[in-house]
Each structure stands twice: as C-alpha cells, then as structure tokens.
Design a protein around this nucleic acid. Structure first.
Lengths: 346, 346
DNA sequence: CTGAAAGCGCTAACAC
DNA sequence: GTGTTAGCGCTTTCAG
C-alpha cells in the first residue's frame, strides 16, 4: 500500500507511466471537461493507484492563488473568537479554502506583523477582528495596496472601505439595559469595555436606553474593564458607591461573570438584591454561580457570514464594495436577572 | 508611501534597479554573509524603500520547505486545546514557522482529510491530538510514508513511532482520587471520558488509588460522559444510586462543572454533602457556582514542548527518535473539595 | 480533444 | 564577492 519514505508522486510521474502529457493529467486532476473519456479513466485509475496528491505550493505559484485565507483575532482563548474561527473554517473549507488562524494578543503591532506574514504567504483574502487603535488605518492601506480582499469583523473602523460583519452594538446596549429596566432596576451600572466599537457602541446603547426611560445615573456608575479579572475589580468599586447600584450590565460575559463573583463574595444576593447581565452567551454562562443572563451575538453566524462575504469579494472581478452585514442581538434571560418580588436593594 | 494596487515587488525588480543579479539580492534578503558591505547597504536601502516582502510560495517551492507546521485538534472551542494552540504558536513563530490550525470535530475521518490537506500544502511537520480510534494507525503511516515529522499530543497511540507530549493521565487519576480520599470521602464516583488514552489512564489512576487505599466501590459508580451536557446527565444518574456517592471525580472540567449543576439542582450541598473535582483547570473554573477543584495539566506547556520537539525532529537529519515528554499534573484545590467538619452525606 | 512552450518567484549548486 | 545555470511542480496560453 504505502512504500515507506517514497518521494511524493508528481503529475510528471503519472504522465510518463501513461504516455500522455503532463497537461492532460493536470486537466483530469482539475476536472476540466476537455479530456477524452478513456484517457480520463486511465489517468484517474493511476492517480488512485499511486495516491497522488497535488502539490499546492507549486499549484499556488503557477496559478497565482493559494486558496488560503487568513483570519486574525485578538484572542483565541476567548470563546467568542474561537467560535467565529470555527464558523469561518466550517463555511469556507467546503468552498476549497484553508484558513490560517492568527492571534494578535490584542496588540496592534503583533497584528501588523501577522498581516505581513500572511500577505507574504500570498493569502487570497483576510478576515480581521482588528486590534488597531481606532483611528489608525495604516495596516488597512497596506492590505488594500496589495489588492487583497478584506472583511472586518467585530470591530468597525471608520473610513476603511472594507465590508464589515458584526452585531449591532448599540442595539446590544439598549436591549440589555431595557431588560434591566423592565425588571424594575433603576440604578443601573455599566462595566464598559475597551474604547473600540463594541465597547463604545454598547455604552451608547446603555446611555440611550436610560435616557429614553428618563433614568439618570451618576457618572461613577460607569467603570471600565475587559475580562473576568478586571470585571471583578470593577464590580468591587461599584459596590462601594452610595447609593449602591441595583444592576450591572457587563460589557461581555467574562466581565459580568467576574462582577458576579465580587457581588456574591460581598454577600449580596443575585438576582434578589442585584441583577447582572452580560454579552456573548459564552458556553459556560449556564454553569456559573448564578446562571448569567446575556445577549447572544451569534458568533458562529458572524464567522459564517464573514467567510461568505470574503469569498464573494474574492470571486468578483470588479470592485463590488460588498455590503456589510449587521446581525441583530437576542436576549437570553437566565436567573441572574430573574424577576424578584419587590426587588429591594440596600 | 503606498501606491495603490501596485503589483508586489520582486527580487528581480530590485536587482534590475541596482544593476546586480537576482542572486545577490536573494542572498541579502536571507542574510547570507558572502555579500560586499556596500552592495548589501544599497540592496537593503532599496528593499526598505520599496517595502519588499518575500513571496513565500515561491520560496517554499524552490527551497523545498514551507516553514509551515500543521496543528490538528479535536475541538478549538475546548479551552484546553485553544491554550495548546496558543502555546504552539507562541513557541514556534519566533523560530520562523507559521501554524495552520485545524479542527477535526473529534472525527477520525475529518481528521484524515485535514491531514491530507496539510500534506498537500507541504507542511514541514505536524502536531496532532488525534481523534482516530485507538488501534487505527493508517493515517500515521500515511504521514510517515511522506517522511513528515510528527508529534502526538494529549492522546497516545501504541506502536506509532512518534514522540508524544502530554500529561501523565494515570497520575492525574491518582492525584484527584487521593485528594478526595484525604478529604474524607469513601464513596467516590467517577465520570469517565471517551475510550482514548486520557480517559482510560485517568480511570486506571482512579481505580489504582482506590485499591491502594483499600476502598471498593460499586461498578455503578463509574459512568461515562464527554462534556458539560453529558456530565450533567451522568451526575443525575449517580445521584439516584444507593448509597449515594459522597464525591465525584470528573474526567475533565466540563464534565465536572456539568455534574455540579446537577448536584446543586438536587439541593445537595457542595462541598458539605458531596465533593467534586475535575481536570484541566479551565479558565472559568474559579467562576463556577462553587469554585471547582481541578488538576492542572499545563496546557500551554504541552503546546510549547510539542513545538520544540517538532522543530528538533525537523532539524535533525538522522532519524533521531526524539524523546517523549510527560508532564506531571498539579492539584489545584478550591472550594468544591474544601474540608468539611464531619463530611456527612445522605 | 491533446500537447508544446513559457513561466510563476525564488533558491540550490557551482562557476567566475 | 558575484553571477550563472537549472530547476522546484504546476498552470496558463495557444497551437495542433
């Protein structure tokens, strides 16, 4: 079956064996129609026999495309991005592409070098959840200069002429805040995220929802965090405020989960004395000390749509600007915001 | 700076501009020593000026190596594997390699096609947490036939002559079980994992530790699960047994977390009436309803060692068999196995 | 339907 | 030190 340590079979080998030209074999491999039935049969047989696998490096060089796309995310450990990665792979592999996944560590400089690396590898396109500072567009220009199709996800960048796929962050902020208001909360605090579009949009949604309901809260009700550890710290600060908030809307699930830890440690009941909601519907939300209400942003769908959009751009010769896709968020109400009789807080 | 839509700069362009040969430029790019200082200076200047980036596809074809390694894991959403992926990338990128990460979905067939794909892409080496059934070695032979270096992680396969990097699963089982015994538990149940080396090894360690302590438990105390959902179901079955277990050792953290959910739902106190321990030290263990005791298996270190081992094999001309690396597990005791006065259970 | 010619961009190996 | 000669394995273009 497999003769140990043999050098890989090439088109040339098959062509020689069958007394046909390399071209003919190549055409059969690629499924071109213009090959005689009998010839095709013989070639196919030999291909199977020798277990021929095309050399994609050579193919890429000759054809001028690699059928590889790059995906750069800030943190693969964050299940939101892991799920996106999964969605991208699952969608784009059946279309014949492979995905190279890179981790920028939430660092713009690392990201820039990942991009260069991928461009050097001649990727056919790029999907990017960028860690660039909000107004820095240099890397995007570098990509555009190379003429490599780009799709932005999760984070928007003003003035960058690339399609964007993501959730409506302001809607997220409104949805979460409105839910807390409906549950009877009035002193709603917010753990805001980093100053990128998701954090900024969710904050704005939060403020808009409060304003629309005629509720005003002290500025100290807005604190900043990014992950569970900083969410925990942020919540501890919130708990010392007078009057104490009766609800916390966390920028994402990790911050909300960290906040819950601080709240419960302080002996405050959730949802009785304080309600908590996050964003992202991470897989373990349901297993937390108190199952965490959250806003689902269908991460897998983001990956899927981003992949489809990218392939569309790659395939379209003309510079069809390709529409952005904004996904509507969905509320997942669990115990951390359950209705409580009276909703009394300290 | 960047003239839009220009075709990429090639060695040839620089050579022409400077009236030197392509070879000379190539040598400068690769940092070869045998180039005159002045020539090198001029070339370097022009490279910077034009922002030249080597075409890795062409380079790979000519040089016969891609500096790409493949990593195949069963599930990127599992933070254990995500962390390994991170460790691999972080270790191997500084050595000049890129990593292509693939998801086998815990499916041997998918894995086999991922492997073919990667071999077709001419990867220089492979790191594999294989989803093959225990005695199926066909894919490994295919890899060996191509002469591509391979490192196995997380799951061992008897008879496959590839180095292995992972944790000592029997030691994990013993460590967890012994900890429960020391905490006064005697009716210790086990949620066993799938019949791969980690599941089998941890089960054996559990049984050995019980035997060494002279404890015997009914066979019904051993149930099977793989993730949080099945762990939840498995625990519900355990809770109906008479006598009821006073401790559960979960194959991994997700199963243990799922089990905790079932236990708490049944109104049973953790750790008062029942203690729980998992394996993996996943990031959110600390945020669960009751912070989960666990056995840490240093996922990042596994990734790092696997990467180092692989590079070692790639670099060594001769078939140095490269030693396997077995990592010692570490107990992380949290509240779910905290000592309780009396440790009474139903 | 089949194949010859030419070359993708780069690097080995060896001359000069 | 520098450059020449040959490709790597495949695809494109276009002629038979």
């Amino acid at each position: 079956m497999s003769n140990p340590r043999s050098s890989p079979v090439r088109l040339k080998d098959i062509a020689r064996d069958l007394n046909v030209s390399v071209m003919t074999v190549s055409k059969v491999v690629r499924g071109c129609a213009d090959v005689g039935a009998e010839t095709r049969r013989r070639v196919l047989a030999r291909i199977k026999e020798l277990n021929y696998q095309p050399n994609w490096v050579a193919r890429s060089l000759a054809a001028g495309r690699t059928f590889i796309i790059g995906l750069i995310v800030p943190d693969l450990m964050h299940s939101f991005f892991a799920e996106i990665a999964k969605g991208v792979s699952a969608t784009i592999q059946p279309m014949g592409y492979d995905v190279v996944i890179c981790n920028s560590e939430e660092n713009g400089g690392v990201e820039a070098s990942e991009i260069d690396r991928l461009l050097g590898r001649q990727v056919d396109g790029l999907i990017l959840a960028s860690a660039q500072p909000p107004s820095s567009t240099e890397v995007f220009e570098r990509i555009a200069a190379r003429g490599v199709p780009l799709v932005l996800i999760d984070r928007r960048f003003a003035g960058v002429p690339a399609p964007y796929v993501g959730v409506d962050d302001e809607a997220i902020g409104r949805l979460a805040t409105l839910h807390l208001i409906e549950r009877g909360c009035r002193r709603i605090a917010h753990i805001a995220g980093p100053p990128l579009t998701p954090g900024v949009g969710r904050l704005k949604g939060y403020q808009d929802a409060l304003a629309a309901a005629g509720i005003s809260v002290p500025g100290s009700y807005i604190v900043r965090a990014a992950d569970d550890a900083s969410g925990y710290q942020a919540a501890r600060r919130l708990l010392e405020l007078q009057p104490r908030p009766d609800a916390i809307f966390g920028y994402n699930d990790p911050t909300a989960a960290g906040a819950m830890k601080a709240i419960l440690e302080a002996g405050i009941d959730i949802p009785g004395q304080m309600k908590v909601i996050g964003v992202g519907n991470v897989h373990y939300s349901d297993l937390l000390r108190v199952p965490l209400s959250t806003i689902d942003q269908s991460s897998a769908a983001i990956g899927q749509h981003a992949a489809e959009t990218l392939v569309k751009v790659i395939s379209s010769k003309r510079k069809r600007p390709a529409r952005s896709i904004i996904i509507e968020p969905v509320l997942i109400a669990r115990e951390s915001t359950a209705a409580t009789a009276g909703h009394r807080a300290a």
